[in-house]
Design a binder for these strands. Structure first.
Length: 497
RNA sequence: GGGUCGGUAGCUCAGCCGGUAGAGCAGCGGACUUUUAAUCCGUUGGUCGCGAGUUCGCAUCUCGCCCGACCCA
């Protein structure tokens, strides 16, 4: 048995020795155990029955799971098994199973996977339990579990070894089960609204649909550079051109940027497009979606996040950037905030990042990010984004400097971004050309020109509204999770030393 | 990139004004036929993140590095 992992210790050695003895005695990893019941189902079905009722019924069950607790008392023992549904206690005694089975059980370790066959009964203290006539070791666990009471508390280990976090931490299991329910509820919502779920490429030869740095890779057979997608947007709109007038996709995007409590390099995005709608329709639709998902998954629209409350049932706020700044800084007049020199002076005063070449709209956006964004705890649509930062959005007929676009902020974070789509092929081509100039001038996040996308628009995209919603952030909100790493099963980490 | 905090037994943690490393859980041995973080007795287990430095002597003090959490950019 040479060549074991680096971190062998006395406990692991002891368990390997036990496994060696088991191998000698027969099949060490049997797969013929026929589990008939789950712990949670038994509790739900029979938890209310009293001792005498259970004795009368004689309910035979075969349960399996990981042994989480173990109490040996000479000629009888209790163990707690954990399966996908919950925990159930089993009772093993010389009288019920024979001395040999019980003696073998005494050498099983916490973390071992066991199968037990027996009859349900209630203990003196009223806990539903299985009186085992048989107990078998199904899988020997070679590594000791985290401390049984405190569980795993090291954040790094929770992320790197999520399986351990899931074994020991019920809250972690709850979060990820809720994650799945949220995504199912979203999917249901769109399917009920006659949307078609589609999958578009994750590998792009021209990364598009967002302003972000892409990951690069290489296709050997074609000998060409490829990019992991930063957004599916341009492909989904091609599908609307093709006549799929309501489409959505829930899938991964990749952005080559820093890690933080709100950013993981790969993250899940919902994007959806609907023809013959505009951005105002989208705002109403988004409110409805979020309300329905919360109601369905949490049973309420009242959200408690990191000690603060908000109600998704109330109408969402709708403000322009200038109004949002004024909400938290009423000392600024509308005239001042529409005065380029004034805004620049404020940005310099705040030591904020901004691009000096930006027009008024871009500068207002910088000031908004500095002064208002993180304060927008209650759901708030910010509308009227400037054209210069919205190269794929339709400009407003009333004011060509702004677009029919909104971003939704909740908990001080961007959650969604939507707009009436730019369907004027010639305008789109001009906007791409402006982005290419910006890229050449050094803006790494400026967009690439996608000529095939322009060609698609030249065939005609109906008036369309489209939106993206950050699913991980939505899940953070609905599960009261402080970090994006708490809602991604295997978050990106530096390699282990 | 900057700041704060942290890294000691498999896990949860103490020790840190320098003097050769501790507890609980887990493990091992023993007692115990209704326990439930079982209890009781005994006991094994450590490259104190890594590397330099200071010192007669460093888990402890200094510097650098690595990893992580949180905050800021």
């Amino acid at each position: 048995m040479a060549g074991h992992p680096q971190d062998e210790n006395q406990i692991i050695t002891e368990r390997r020795n036990k496994l060696a003895a088991i191998r000698k005695a027969g099949i060490a990893f049997p797969n013929d155990f026929d589990r008939t019941h789950l712990a949670g189902d038994l509790l739900a079905s029979f938890g209310e029955m009293n001792h005498d009722q259970l004795e009368a019924e004689q309910i035979h069950v075969a349960v399996g799971g990981r042994m989480m607790l173990k109490r040996v008392m000479g000629k009888a023992s209790f163990a707690t098994l954990q399966d996908m549904s919950g925990r159930i206690q089993i009772y093993i005694s010389n009288g019920d199973s024979g001395e040999e089975v019980h003696d073998a059980f005494k050498h099983y370790d916490l973390g071992d996977i066991l199968g037990a066959v027996g009859v349900l009964f209630k203990t003196k203290t009223g806990e539903l339990s299985v009186r085992a006539s048989q107990v078998r070791l199904l899988t020997k666990s070679l590594r000791p579990l985290p401390e049984k009471f405190h569980g795993l508390s090291d954040q790094e280990q929770k992320y790197r070894q999520r399986y351990l976090d899931l074994i020991t931490n019920e809250e972690a299991r709850r979060v990820f089960m809720t994650r799945t329910k949220i995504i199912q509820a979203i999917r249901d919502f769109f399917i009920r609204h006659d949307y078609l779920e589609v999958e578009t490429p994750m590998m792009h030869s021209i990364p598009g649909g967002a302003s972000a740095k892409p990951f690069e890779t290489h296709h050997n057979a074609l000998d060409m550079k490829m990019y992991l997608r930063i957004a599916p947007e341009l492909y989904l709109k091609r599908l609307v051109v093709g006549g799929f007038e309501k489409v959505f996709e829930i899938n991964r995007n990749f952005r080559n940027e820093g890690l933080s409590t709100r950013h993981n390099p790969e993250f899940t995005m919902l994007e959806f497009y609907e023809a013959y709608r505009d951005y105002k329709y989208l705002m109403d639709f988004t409110e409805k979606l979020l309300r329905e998902v919360a109601q369905k998954v949490l049973g309420t629209t009242l959200i408690s996040y990191q000690g603060k409350e908000l109600d998704l049932g109330k109408p969402f706020h709708r403000l322009t950037m200038v109004q949002a700044i004024q909400k938290y800084h009423p000392q600024f007049s509308t005239e001042q905030l529409n005065d380029r020199d004034f805004v620049v002076a404020e940005l310099i005063d705040l030591k904020a990042k901004y691009k000096p070449e930006d027009g008024l709209g871009g500068l207002q956006l910088s000031l908004f990010e500095e002064l208002a964004e993180t304060q927008l705890f209650e759901p708030t649509f910010i509308i009227d984004y400037p054209v210069e930062v919205s190269p794929l959005a339709r400009s407003s007929d009333a004011n060509p400097e702004i677009t029919e676009r909104f971003e939704l902020f909740v908990l001080g974070r961007e959650l969604a971004n939507g707009f009436s789509e730019l369907n004027d092929a010639e305008d789109q081509e001009a906007r791409f050309d402006a982005q290419v100039l910006a890229k050449e001038a050094g803006d790494e996040e400026a967009m690439f020109k996608d000529s095939d996308y322009v060609r698609a628009l030249e065939y005609g995209l109906p008036p369309t509204a489209g939106e993206g919603i950050g699913i991980d952030r939505l899940i953070m909100m609905l599960t009261d999770s402080a970090s994006i790493r708490d809602v991604i099963l295997f978050p990106q980490m530096r390699p282990e030393a």
